[in-house]
Each structure stands twice: as C-alpha cells, then as structure tokens.
C-alpha cells in the first residue's frame, strides 16, 4: 500500500446543530430536522438510514445546497454547499434518474461538462460508461433502457466531473429487489475503483450495511440522529459478505432500531 496522504482524515462534510423547519400555509411551521450533528471524513462512505419521513432526504438536500438550514451550519470542505455546487464539485443521483429524455446516454453523461462550460472529455465519458456497464448503449436514449440501466447512467453522470462529494438519494429505491441487489454489487465495485466521499440516503438496512463504512440511523418527527454505527466488513465486499452471521446479526440489530418505539 502506498503511504496514505495526510488529507485522508480531513473532515469533508460537517453538519453542526443543523435544523430545518418548513413554513406551512397556515402560518405555522413543521420541524423536519432538529439539531443534527454529522461529521463525514474525506473518502468516507456514509449511509443515512431511516424510515420514510424521518428527514434523511432533507439532510442530503442540505448537503447538496438544495435547501438551507434554518438553524446551525452545513459545510463541505469548510465552505457552503451552494458554493461547491457553483464550482461543479458535487455529483448527485436521485431516485428519479433525472436523465434528459432527448439526449443519448453518452450526451447525458456529458451534460455536467456542458453545464460547467468545460470541454467534453470523450475518453472520460467512455470510461465511465464502461465502468457502469453500459458499453454498447452509448447512443441509446433513456426511454430505450431498463430502470436499472437508467440508474447506472445517472451514476455515471454523477461521476463525470470527478466530484469532491457524491450524493446518492435512494438511487435504487424504485427498482425491484433483485435488480437493486445487483446494482448494490455494481456500486460497491465502482466505489472500490475510485474512493470518494459519498453520502447515501436509503431505507434499506442491507444496502446500507453492504455499501457504507458508517451508518447514521435517524428517527423522524422531528428528524434526529439515533445511532452512529461503524460497519466492520473489509473491502472489497463480495456478495458472500451478505451471507455471514455477523451481517445478519447487524441487519437484525439495525432493523430493530428502525422500528417505531413504544
């Protein structure tokens, strides 16, 4: 192993006492997040796990700069998320693939270059399309692809500009269980090929355990951090890791943590 650079342990993403309240039409407000403290190191893969409505997507939207915190602070590399977005340093994949239907796969992957007004790196795009296993589909349009292939294309697009931070908001949430597991194995392989700070929002315990270095478990109404669990499995992880007793024990433990109290 080459010597690990000093930056390895630097903090990449920091939420300090971050809160988010949404104003309602009747003049009141609803608290979606309450005093969230999350610290993510550079190069770390963190999964945010929680039941639907616990505010986990709001955490990701704060980090993506799509929402601003109503209290506390959110920083990426010491700067405001919107600033990083403006410098095209964020990669994102949503549950809705958000591919542009009138563009081919390769033009969709090239979109971040065009939006950033940078010369389109054709070789990078070809490499990313190969990385997500879509070689041969460069000229296909999104409507001609399966749901899983569309998500692969959207992940390739998220990686196009070699971002500092990769944000994944339930990217496989709309897929069936078999495709989803397959996509998790693929994502694990992609992530092993290029380690970068990643935040994955998911409601699947298995997905979080298989992919992440650390899992932050959230509870809802208002959203709070319930547990912060380190994932002990060595990388690269193979599908066999999903079948070990330790894996099953952790699945049971985290599933219990997600169940409503009382």
């Amino acid at each position: 192993m080459p010597d690990i650079p000093q930056t390895e342990c630097r903090e990449a993403i920091a939420l300090r006492a971050a809160g988010k309240a949404f104003a309602l039409d009747d003049g009141g407000s609803v608290v979606a997040l309450d005093g969230i403290d999350i610290s993510i190191r550079e190069g770390e893969f963190v999964a945010i796990l929680g039941p639907s409505g616990c505010g986990k997507s709001t955490v990701l939207r704060l980090v993506a700069g799509l929402e601003t915190a109503t209290s506390g602070t959110v920083h990426i590399e010491g700067r405001a998320p919107a600033e990083l977005a403006a410098h095209h340093r964020l990669g994102v994949a949503f549950q809705d693939h958000a591919l542009l239907p009138w563009l081919s796969v390769s033009d969709n992957v090239a979109l971040p270059f065009r939006v950033a007004r940078k010369p389109v790196a054709r070789d990078t795009i070809a490499r990313l399309i190969a990385l997500v296993g879509l070689s041969g589909f460069e000229n296909a349009r999104p409507s001609q692809l399966s749901g899983g292939m569309r998500q692969r294309a959207s992940i390739a697009r998220a990686l196009a500009l070699d971002p500092d931070v990769l944000l994944l908001d339930e990217p496989f949430g709309a897929l069936d269980a078999v495709t989803r597991r397959h996509m998790n194995i693929e994502l694990q392989r992609i992530w092993s090929a290029r380690t970068l700070t990643t935040v994955l929002v998911t409601h699947s315990v298995e997905e979080a355990l298989f992919l992440a270095d650390r899992i932050i478990v959230m509870t809802g109404r208002p959203g709070r951090v319930l547990r912060d669990v380190a994932v002990p499995f060595a990388r690269p992880r193979t599908p066999e890791a999903l079948r070990t007793a330790q894996f099953h024990a952790m699945v049971d433990d985290l599933t219990r943590a997600l169940e409503p109290q009382g």
Binding site: A64, G65, L66, A85, A86, H87, H88, R89, L90, V92, F94, Q95, D96, H97, A98, L99, L100, P101, W102, L111, P112, R114, V115, A116, R117, L167
Partner: peptide, 27 residues
C-alpha cells in the same frame, strides 16, 4: 420539465443561461 431535473441542474451548478439552454429550451 422532466422530473428532478431542476434539482439536478442546481446541484450541477448551472447558470441561468446554462439551465435555459440545456434544460428549459430542449424540454
């Protein structure tokens, strides 16, 4: 606009002109 594309363009750091040219006009 197609679903979630508005959020995508914000995260990609698109300028108003970039958003018009690459998203709104083609759509």
């Amino acid at each position: 606009l197609p679903r979630a594309t508005d959020d995508l363009f914000k995260v990609l750091g698109a300028t108003p002109w970039g958003r018009l040219r690459h998203l709104v006009l083609p759509a």
